[in-house]
Design a protein around this nucleic acid. Structure first.
Lengths: 347, 347
DNA sequence: CGTCCTTATGTAAACGCTTACATACACGCT
DNA sequence: AGCGTGTATGTAAGCGTTTACATAAGGACG
C-alpha cells in the first residue's frame, strides 16, 4: 500500500479512470442502460472486480430519481397471516431488485402516519398499505409527492384507491351464514378493535347485518372487541360463558382468537363443537393442528402480497395503471362448528 | 397557479430563498445540528410548512454519509419467533429514527449473501444477521465497506463476531437432559436442516453429545432433519412411529415441528405424554394452546431483537464497541413430556 | 475603544451517481 | 465523393443535501 492509500471508497470515477473510459460508460456497464462494446465492458468489469467496487445506491437513487425502495406498512408481523403477506412481498421485491422498507404500526394510526411520512422522505417509489382508514393528510402527502400506493386487506369501492384485497364483509357473512345454517340463533362475535382496524369493522358490520337479515337481534353483550391474542380470545370467551344466556356459537374474526376461545371452552369442560361452535378467520397453518380442527375463512394473504407487489412494480416499470383486484375467500369447513345442542346445555 | 408552476419538488434551496436565509440554515433547522435564532427558525419552519416541503433522505444520506438505514436479514418471518424478533427490531429502529430494510433469505445461503450485498450497496449503516455461517466473502464485504454487523440467534466464541444471542447447545441440552431425567433412553430428534442452519446444527450436536455423555448411542434412524413446518414435523414423527422400535420421547428443535409431532401421535392414538413425550423449542404463544401444553425451551426472541438493535445503534451514534451478549434460555415444563411407560406400549 | 470571544449565519464545495446532448467513427447508399 | 444512419463513447450539468470554513455582529474586558 502506498502512502496515498486513503481509506476513500472507490467511485465510478476511479473505475472510469483506470479502465480508460468515462464515468458514463461505467454507469452503462453497471446498469445496462445502453449498449457497450464487449471488450470495453469486460475491461470495466475487470477493474470493478479488482477494486471491489460497490455501487452507491443512495447516489444512484438521487441522480436517477429511482430509489429502488418499496415501503410496506402493516399493523403487525407477529400474526403469521401478516408475516406470510410480508414475506411474499419481500420475495417479489427481491426478484425485481427492489428493497423493502418494513414498517410496523402496531395498530396505532399515529404510528402508521409517521411511517408513511418517513417512507416518503426516504423516497420510496411506492407504498403498500394495510386498510384504507387513515387521515386525509397521509393520502395528500402521497399524492403531493407522487408516491403511488396500493391498499391491501380491504376492498373499497373508492375508485381513487387502488387495492389488492378480498371482501371482509363477504367473508364474514359466509362464516355467519354457515353458523346460521347449522341452526344457531344465538351467536357471539369476537373481533379486533373496530376503532383502529377497518377490516375488523367490516367483519363486525357483516356479522350484525347478516343476523339482522334473518331477523335476529344482535345482543351487544355477545360482541367483544379485543386484541389479536390467544389470551384475549380466551378472556372474551370466558366473558360470554359467564353470562346467564351464553351463545351456542361464536364467530371469531381471527384464528388466534378462535383458538383462544376453543381453549377456554375446553378448559370449562364445554365440548367444541358439541357445546359450542366456533368459526375462525384467516386459516392459519395452525388451524388444522388444533383440536378440533378449526372451521375458518381462508384468506389469500400470500397471493395478495405477491399481487400487490407485482402491481406496484408493474406500475413503476411499465406504467401499468393501478387498479383494484378483489380476491376470493373461502369457508373451510373442518370440525369446530356443528349444529347447536337440541336443548339446553347438556354438558 | 402561475404558468411557472413547474411540478418540481421543493428543495431546501427554495425554502432558503423564500425564508431569506441560506440553505445551511435551513439544514440546521431541519436537523438541529447547530443553534438557530428562534425567530429565524420560526420563519424557516413557517415556509417549510406552507410549501409542504419534504426532506430528501437520499440526498441527505449521500451528503452526510449517514443513510439512517438498518439491514435485517432473517431466514423467514412466517415463523412467529422470527417475527417477534423482527418486530422488536423495527420498534427500536423506529424510536431511534432509523428505517429497517427487510431481507428474508428463506434459508438459502446464496440469497442471504445477495441480500447482504444489496444492503451494503444501499448503504445501510449496520446489519443484523441471523447465525454466523456464511461465506467469508460476505464478512469481507462488510469489513471492506466498514458496515458494522451483529450476529443473532447463535452465540459464538469468535471474538471478531459481535453477537446478541443465546446458547443453542446449552438450551438443547436442557431439553434432552429433562427427557433423560424423566427416564427416557430412546429419544428421537426432529430438527431443522443442519446444512443451511447453524442453529439447528448446534441443537443437533448438543442432542447427540448429551446422549453420548450418558452412554446412550444415538440411533441415526431417530434423527430427522426437516423444514420448520407443521406437516414436516408430523411426517417426521410418522416416520419414527413406523419403525420397529420407536422412541419413547422426541425432542423437536422447534415448536412448530413439535406441534406437528403431537398431532401425529394423537392421530395414531398414541397419548402424549403417556405414550410419547415431546419437548419443543421456542415457546411460541401457541405452546400453551395446544393439548397437551407444550414443554419447551423459552427463547428470548423479542429481547434479543431489542438488544441487537440497541447495540448497533449505540455503536453508530456513540461509538460503543460491539460486544457479545448471551441471553439465558429456560426450560418451560408443561405437560407434553413425562416418564416413559413402565413396560412395552400399553396404548 | 481595540481586542477577543461567542453566537448566528452565509458560501460553496463536496457526496457519487445519471443522463441529455455532443461527438466520433464506420458503414451503406446514391 | 457526399450524405445519412446508427452505434459507442465522452462531456458536464445536475440530483438535494451537508458541512468546513469564512464572516458578521454583538458583547465583555482591560
Amino acid at each position: 500500500m502506498t502512502a496515498k492509500a486513503e481509506k476513500r471508497r472507490k467511485t465510478i470515477r476511479d473505475i472510469a479512470r483506470e479502465a480508460r473510459v468515462s464515468t458514463a460508460t461505467v454507469s452503462r456497464v453497471l446498469n445496462g442502460s445502453a449498449p457497450v462494446r464487449p471488450d470495453t465492458r469486460e475491461r470495466v468489469e475487470h477493474v470493478i472486480e479488482r477494486h471491489h467496487f460497490v455501487f452507491d445506491g443512495l447516489a444512484g437513487g438521487l441522480a436517477s430519481r429511482r430509489s429502488g425502495l418499496l415501503g410496506l406498512v402493516i399493523p403487525t408481523v407477529i400474526n403469521s397471516i401478516y408475516a406470510a403477506f410480508a414475506q411474499s412481498i419481500q420475495a417479489v421485491a427481491q426478484k425485481e431488485r427492489y428493497t423493502v422498507l418494513l414498517g410496523v404500526s402496531e395498530f396505532s394510526p399515529a404510528e402508521e402516519e409517521r411511517l408513511i411520512e418517513q417512507f416518503i422522505a426516504r423516497r420510496v417509489e411506492a407504498l403498500i398499505l394495510t386498510g384504507a382508514d387513515r387521515p386525509a393528510r397521509s393520502y395528500q402527502q402521497m399524492r403531493r409527492n407522487q408516491v403511488p400506493f396500493i391498499i391491501t386487506w380491504k376492498s373499497t369501492r373508492r375508485r381513487d384507491l387502488p387495492s389488492v384485497s378480498f371482501d371482509n364483509g363477504d367473508a364474514a357473512r359466509k362464516a355467519v351464514s354457515f353458523l346460521l345454517q347449522c341452526g344457531h340463533r344465538r351467536i357471539g362475535l369476537i373481533c379486533g378493535r373496530t376503532g383502529v382496524n377497518d377490516r375488523a369493522r367490516e367483519r363486525r358490520d357483516a356479522f350484525e347485518t347478516t343476523l339482522k337479515e334473518r331477523g335476529i337481534t344482535v345482543d351487544p353483550e355477545l360482541v367483544c372487541e379485543c386484541d389479536f391474542e390467544f389470551d384475549a380470545g380466551r378472556a372474551a370467551m370466558q366473558g360470554m360463558l359467564r353470562r346467564p344466556d351464553p351463545p351456542t356459537a361464536v364467530f371469531c374474526a381471527n384464528d388466534i382468537q378462535a383458538i383462544g376461545a376453543i381453549t377456554e371452552c375446553r378448559g370449562e369442560g364445554i365440548p367444541v363443537p358439541g357445546g359450542m361452535s366456533i368459526v375462525g378467520f384467516d386459516d392459519l397453518p395452525i388451524a388444522t393442528f388444533v383440536d378440533p380442527q378449526l372451521t375458518t375463512i381462508r384468506v389469500p394473504a400470500a397471493e395478495m402480497g405477491r399481487l400487490a407487489a407485482e402491481a406496484v412494480i408493474a406500475h413503476l416499470t411499465r406504467h401499468t395503471p393501478l387498479g383494484s383486484i378483489v380476491l376470493p375467500t373461502e369457508l373451510i369447513v373442518r370440525s369446530s362448528a356443528s349444529g347447536p345442542m337440541p336443548a339446553g346445555r347438556p354438558w
